[in-house]
Simulated assay, not measured.
Amino acid sequence: MTERLTMARCECGAAAGPLGACVDYYHAVLAEEQGDPGMYRWHAVVVCAYFLQHPSGAHPKYLDDQFRQLQLCLDRGLDALLRVGARQVARNRHGARPAHDPDPLSAYAPLPPGGPPRHFRATFSDLPVRDGSFVSDGHPAYGRRIETIAAATVESWRSLQA
């Protein structure tokens, strides 16, 4: 335990976990989800939450949409977010309309200025890994953990407005 406390903190303020820093967890999640459709359903939420917690690795122009996507997911659920994503992909494929359709996300608050937050109550280095897997206790449990990280991300960014 002492060793973990003395390790350098991640950009999000978290201490490293058994796999290393949050970036190590992020890459491990991305690798595992490639072979697991049930886990891959959470891909958009994982990407949005990771980059909002670690914005130095993100392109700033996407952070607002990512923040709104997390709010949509928390408000209406993963299936609603996946439907919005599928609709956007279909629109892009047909080329009949502009590439970006802000309507589904316009109801959600924009990314607050002054970030990033210094602390999140749940981070990627908090994810448990058992038997080399993030889903060893099932996809519903994994989804709840990713949703907790998403909620913590939105909460911390919203706290900047206070």
Score class of each variant (00 low, 15 high):
G85C: 06
R97D: 00
P112H: 14
P55F: 15
Q88F: 08
R68M: 08
V47A: 06
R91F: 05
L63C: 10
S106F: 02
L70M: 00
P55I: 11
G95Y: 07
V84C: 01
Q71Y: 12
A58N: 10
H119M: 06
H54A: 15
D64E: 14
V47T: 05
L111W: 06
P98W: 03
Q69K: 15
R118D: 10
P117L: 02
P116H: 04
R93E: 05
P116M: 09
L72Q: 02
A90F: 04
D79Q: 01
P104L: 06
P60Q: 00
P113M: 04
Y50N: 06
K61T: 14
H59P: 07
D103Q: 03
A90H: 15
L81F: 07
A99I: 03
C73G: 08
G95K: 08
A44N: 11
R91P: 01
Y108V: 12
P112V: 06
G85A: 04
V89I: 13
G85S: 04
H54K: 12
P55L: 04
R93S: 00
H59A: 10
R91A: 13
Y108I: 01
Y108K: 10
L63M: 08
D79C: 00
A99E: 02
P98D: 06
F51I: 11
P102Y: 01
P113Y: 13
R121N: 09
Q71A: 12
R76I: 04
H54I: 09
P60V: 10
H100D: 03
P110C: 08
F120W: 09
P60C: 05
L72K: 01
P55T: 13
G85L: 13
P55Q: 01
P104I: 07
Q88V: 10
D75S: 11
S106W: 00
H59F: 14
A96H: 04
C73N: 00
D101M: 02
P110H: 13
A86F: 07
A109M: 10
L81G: 12
V45G: 00
K61D: 09
A107D: 05
D79Y: 12
D75R: 06
F120E: 05
P117K: 05
Q66A: 15
P55H: 05
K61M: 09
A49L: 15
A44T: 15
P110S: 14
R68A: 03
R121I: 09
D79K: 11
P102E: 00
R97N: 06
P55M: 13
C48T: 07
L74P: 02
H54E: 15
R76D: 00
D65F: 15
R121E: 14
G57T: 14
G95I: 04
R121Y: 12
L105M: 09
A86P: 11
